[in-house]
Structure formats: structure tokens, C-alpha cells
């Protein structure tokens, strides 16, 4: 596979084109905490923020995003109840009610 650089057998596998994992936290609106929404891969912090905006906020203006390297998170070993993430506002055509479907069409 192009772009891979595997060290000798048995050694750790290092893949040069693989970006590190970041965890993403989004403030859905003012007055709320940042909540964990998922992860993504990015080469560095600045790109992580760019990717986080595109993936997890899809352009809802005014949100705040944190991205932190997954390996920098200190975590308890207890079972955790992760917060759910809030949906993003988006272009109106992403919104199901944008589509004009007659009321008598069932289940859609």
C-alpha cells in the first residue's frame, strides 16, 4: 500500500500517512457546556479544528469547538456515561420538513 512505512517484522507499525485521533467537543449554544460528540483524524491541532467544524457542526454559526488529541485525555477507569451530542443547524434542505410531502403519505 502506498504511503505506508512498516518497520521490520515484530516491531511497532508506523504508518506515515495516518493522522492521530482527536476527540471533539461542541458547545451547541450559549449557556451549555461543551459536550463530547465523537472523534476524527487530523494531522495537527489547526486542521483538527477545521475538520471538527466541517464534520460535527456543519456550519451552524456561533458554536464553539474544542479538539484534543485522544492520547492526551486522562480518563477514569470507571464506566462512564458519555453525554450525547447536540445536532447542528444546517442548510434548510437538510431538514426533513423542508420537503413538501402530502400529509396522507404514511411513514415518511
Amino acid at each position: 500500500m502506498s504511503g505506508t512505512d512498516r518497520t521490520s517484522a515484530g516491531g511497532p507499525v508506523r504508518i506515515r500517512d495516518e493522522w492521530p485521533l482527536y476527540e471533539v467537543f461542541v458547545r451547541g449554544k450559549r449557556g451549555l457546556n461543551h459536550v463530547h460528540v465523537g472523534s476524527l483524524r487530523a494531522p495537527d491541532d489547526a486542521m483538527a479544528l477545521v475538520h471538527a467544524r466541517d464534520l460535527y457542526t456543519r456550519r451552524n454559526e456561533g458554536v464553539s469547538v474544542w479538539a484534543v488529541r485522544s492520547d492526551s485525555i486522562a480518563a477514569s477507569t470507571l464506566a462512564e456515561k458519555d453525554p450525547f451530542f447536540a445536532p447542528s443547524g444546517d442548510k434548510v434542505y437538510r431538514h426533513p420538513t423542508f420537503y413538501d410531502i402530502p400529509d396522507d403519505v404514511p411513514h415518511i
Binding site: D82, F84, Y93, R94, H95, P96, F98, Y99, I101, I108
Partner: peptide
């Protein structure tokens, strides 16, 4: 994490189904 990903996916896919039917 799978369930939470699915919640988000399902919400977005109902727009997908409706745009197709429309």
C-alpha cells in the same frame, strides 16, 4: 458509542428519504 452515532445518522437520513420521495 454505536447507538449515539446511529441517533445522529438516523436524524440525517430521514432528510435523505424525504428528498428521494419528493
Amino acid at each position: 458509542p454505536y447507538g449515539r452515532a446511529m441517533v445522529r445518522v438516523c436524524k440525517e437520513e430521514s432528510f435523505h428519504q424525504r428528498q428521494g420521495y419528493e
